[in-house]
């Protein structure tokens, strides 16, 4: 569904994303993990068309989106994007905002309305839907952005740090929604710091560090690989016990190891 080949983004001399490649299948929830400044948001912005790559290719559903604006426009209508900060139009009401989104995605409001009401209900913000967004809390805005990204039934959902500002109950709702989308054949690209969420939801994860993908596999395979690699590097592999490792520990191992071998991350965190 999504194919990224040798994708690179440079800001002057600084390389934010360095020749990354991966492929995501239809119906997959793909986790994209990495520490601050690793290049996650830059990658997401390239996938959504907010940034132009320096080089490389992005194909979505077989269409090379960098080839022409028309290609990108076609793809955008089947894509939903949830950014890390829920910036919306403060002077519209929640419902007006959803109508606006439906309209710019060329979806008839009659089709979108039942979906919108369903998600507003599940996120427990239906009573506030008639209020101006400027009166919403951060969490309510986040839930509204979630709803807006889902009302046109996107085949691909690109999500940047989805759990920020959500209480445990709503985190549960989000996880349920992601599973439902995946079961219906939707593809989710999920960038997160919440490793437990990635571990629970994602069929595969990629760990990006200093703009390069350091590991890409299922969580189980990653655990096995790290155990195997680390054991090979130990003088006495029998002393090493990796049983019961979590994704968090693997993440820290991979990124710590790099910290020792590489220069510190640039100030220009993207």
């Amino acid at each position: 569904m999504i194919k990224v080949s040798d994708l690179t983004k440079k800001y002057g001399d600084f390389t934010a994303v360095d020749s990354i490649s991966f492929e995501i299948k239809k119906g997959e929830i793909f986790g994209f993990l990495g520490p601050n400044g690793a290049g996650k948001t830059t990658t997401i912005k390239m996938l959504t068309g907010l940034l132009k790559p320096t080089s490389g290719d992005i194909s979505i559903d077989g269409i090379n989106i960098l080839e022409s604006d028309r290609n990108f426009e076609k793809v955008k209508s089947v894509m939903g994007y949830i950014p890390d900060t829920p910036n919306v139009y403060d002077k519209l009401t929640g419902m007006e905002f959803l109508k606006f989104i439906a309209s710019i995605f060329k979806v008839d409001w009659k089709e979108a309305e039942p979906l919108a009401l369903n998600y507003l209900e599940r996120f427990n913000i239906i009573k506030s839907a008639g209020n101006m967004i400027e009166t919403y809390s951060h969490g309510m805005r986040q839930k509204l952005v979630f709803t807006s990204a889902l009302i046109h039934n996107p085949a691909i959902l690109i999500v940047d740090e989805p759990m920020i500002g959500l209480d445990p109950k709503n985190v549960r709702v989000v996880k349920d929604i992601f599973r439902e989308i995946s079961q219906k054949g939707g593809t989710i690209f999920l960038s997160t710091h919440t490793l437990s969420v990635a571990e629970e939801l994602c069929s595969r994860v990629a760990i990006i560090f200093h703009g390069r993908i350091k590991a890409l596999d299922t969580v189980e395979n990653l655990k096995k690989k790290v155990i195997f690699d680390t054991a090979n590097n130990q003088s006495d592999s029998n002393d090493v016990n990796f049983s019961g490792k979590t994704l968090e520990e693997i993440f820290l191992m991979l990124t710590d190891e790099e910290n020792e071998n590489n220069e510190p991350a640039s100030e220009n965190e993207k």
Partner: peptide
Amino acid sequence: EGKAFYIIKTAPVDM
């Protein structure tokens, strides 16, 4: 339009 411009930019709108 402010910081919500990403909504237009990521939607199928001809710039």
